[in-house]
Amino acid sequence: MNLTVNGKPSTVDGAESLNVTELLSALKVAQAEYVTVELNGEVLEREAFDATTVKDGDAVEFLY
């Protein structure tokens, strides 16, 4: 899956889609429990991480 992460191209191997929690784990995001996630310009509530799917071509920003 090809994404733009914090403005840079990134690839997650072996996945066509992941939820936000899985993406944080796959990318080994440090202190993931404290990060705010913006997906395609929309800031996500932490409670929505498990239910929100990240797909090929999406833009993700991790805000600390």
Rank of each mutant, 00 (worst) to 15 (best):
M1E: 01
M1F: 13
M1A: 03
M1P: 02
M1C: 06
M1Y: 05
M1L: 11
N2Y: 11
N2S: 12
N2H: 13
N2M: 12
N2P: 02
N2K: 14
L3G: 00
L3Q: 01
L3D: 00
L3W: 04
L3Y: 03
L3P: 01
L3R: 00
L3C: 05
T4K: 09
T4D: 03
T4F: 10
T4V: 11
T4M: 13
T4S: 07
T4E: 04
T4W: 12
T4Y: 10
T4G: 04
V5D: 01
V5E: 02
V5N: 02
V5H: 03
V5A: 03
V5R: 00
N6W: 02
N6D: 05
N6P: 01
N6H: 04
N6Y: 02
N6T: 03
N6I: 01
N6Q: 05
G7I: 03
G7S: 05
G7H: 06
G7E: 02
G7F: 04
K8S: 08
K8R: 12
K8G: 05
K8T: 08
K8M: 11
K8W: 10
K8V: 13
K8L: 10
K8I: 12
K8P: 02
K8H: 10
P9I: 09
P9R: 09
P9Q: 08
P9A: 09
S10P: 01
S10I: 15
S10Q: 14
S10N: 09
S10T: 15
T11S: 09
T11E: 06
T11A: 08
T11L: 11
T11P: 06
T11N: 08
T11G: 06
V12S: 02
V12H: 05
V12A: 03
V12K: 02
D13M: 15
D13L: 15
D13H: 15
D13V: 14
D13N: 13
G14N: 09
G14A: 09
G14W: 14
G14Q: 07
G14P: 05
G14V: 09
G14L: 08
G14M: 09
G14D: 06
G14K: 07
A15D: 06
A15L: 10
E16I: 14
E16H: 13
E16A: 13
E16W: 15
E16M: 14
E16K: 14
E16T: 15
S17Y: 11
S17L: 09
S17V: 11
S17I: 10
S17G: 08
S17N: 09
S17Q: 10
S17M: 10
S17D: 06
S17R: 11
L18F: 08
L18P: 03
L18N: 01
L18Q: 03
L18H: 03
L18Y: 07
L18C: 10
L18W: 07
N19S: 15
N19L: 06
N19G: 03
N19C: 07
N19W: 04
N19F: 07
N19H: 04
N19M: 06
N19D: 03
V20Q: 00
V20A: 01
V20Y: 03
V20G: 01
V20D: 00
V20F: 06
V20C: 05
V20N: 00
T21S: 09
T21R: 09
T21Y: 09
T21N: 10
T21W: 14
T21E: 05
T21F: 08
T21P: 03
E22C: 09
E22G: 09
E22S: 08
E22L: 08
L23I: 04
L23N: 00
L23V: 04
L23T: 03
L23Y: 00
L23Q: 00
L23C: 04
L24G: 00
L24P: 00
L24F: 05
L24M: 09
L24H: 00
L24W: 02
L24S: 01
L24N: 00
L24A: 02
S25N: 11
S25W: 12
S25V: 14
S25R: 14
S25L: 14
S25G: 08
S25D: 10
S25T: 12
S25H: 12
S25K: 14
S25I: 15
A26L: 14
A26F: 14
A26R: 13
A26W: 15
A26D: 01
A26H: 11
L27P: 00
L27H: 02
L27W: 05
L27F: 07
L27Q: 01
L27A: 00
L27S: 00
K28V: 05
K28A: 08
K28Y: 06
K28N: 11
K28T: 05
K28E: 06
K28W: 06
V29E: 03
V29S: 03
V29T: 05
V29P: 05
V29R: 02
V29G: 04
V29F: 07
A30P: 14
A30H: 12
A30D: 11
A30Q: 11
A30N: 10
A30T: 11
A30W: 14
A30M: 11
Q31C: 15
Q31Y: 14
Q31I: 10
Q31G: 13
Q31E: 10
Q31W: 15
A32G: 08
A32M: 11
A32D: 08
A32N: 09
A32E: 07
E33L: 10
E33W: 13
E33A: 12
E33G: 09
E33C: 14
E33K: 09
E33S: 10
E33V: 07
Y34P: 04
Y34L: 12
Y34S: 09
Y34I: 12
V35G: 02
V35A: 05
V35F: 09
V35K: 03
V35I: 10
V35L: 12
T36G: 06
T36Q: 10
T36A: 07
T36Y: 09
T36E: 06
T36C: 12
V37R: 00
V37D: 00
V37Q: 00
V37H: 01
V37S: 01
V37A: 02
V37Y: 03
V37N: 01
E38L: 15
E38Y: 15
E38H: 15
E38Q: 15
E38R: 15
E38T: 15
E38P: 00
E38A: 15
E38K: 15
L39Q: 01
L39F: 05
L39M: 04
L39I: 08
L39N: 00
L39G: 00
L39E: 01
N40V: 02
N40W: 03
N40H: 02
N40P: 00
G41I: 04
G41N: 05
G41R: 04
G41H: 05
G41L: 03
G41Q: 04
G41W: 04
G41V: 02
E42I: 15
E42S: 11
E42G: 06
E42R: 14
E42C: 13
E42L: 13
E42H: 13
E42V: 15
E42M: 14
V43N: 05
V43T: 09
V43I: 12
V43C: 09
V43H: 07
V43K: 11
L44T: 05
L44P: 00
L44N: 00
L44E: 00
E45T: 10
E45H: 12
E45N: 12
E45C: 13
E45R: 13
E45S: 13
E45P: 13
E45F: 10
R46M: 06
R46Q: 06
R46D: 02
R46W: 07
R46I: 05
R46K: 07
R46S: 06
R46P: 08
E47F: 10
E47Y: 10
E47V: 08
E47G: 10
E47M: 09
E47R: 10
A48I: 07
A48R: 11
A48H: 11
A48E: 09
A48Y: 11
A48V: 10
F49S: 03
F49Q: 03
F49V: 01
F49P: 01
F49I: 01
F49A: 01
F49M: 04
D50W: 08
D50I: 07
D50V: 07
A51H: 14
A51Y: 15
A51E: 10
A51K: 14
A51T: 15
T52Y: 06
T52V: 10
T52M: 06
T53G: 06
T53E: 10
T53S: 09
V54M: 04
V54Q: 01
V54R: 01
V54T: 02
K55T: 08
K55M: 08
K55W: 07
K55F: 09
K55V: 09
D56R: 05
D56A: 09
D56E: 09
G57K: 05
G57C: 05
G57D: 04
G57Y: 03
G57A: 04
G57W: 03
D58M: 05
D58R: 00
D58Y: 04
D58H: 02
D58P: 02
D58K: 00
A59N: 12
A59D: 08
A59V: 15
A59G: 06
A59M: 11
A59L: 10
A59H: 13
A59W: 13
V60F: 09
V60E: 02
V60N: 02
V60M: 05
E61F: 13
E61V: 15
E61Q: 12
E61Y: 14
E61W: 15
F62G: 00
F62P: 03
F62A: 02
F62N: 01
F62R: 01
F62C: 06
L63Y: 15
L63S: 14
L63A: 11
Y64M: 08
Y64F: 10
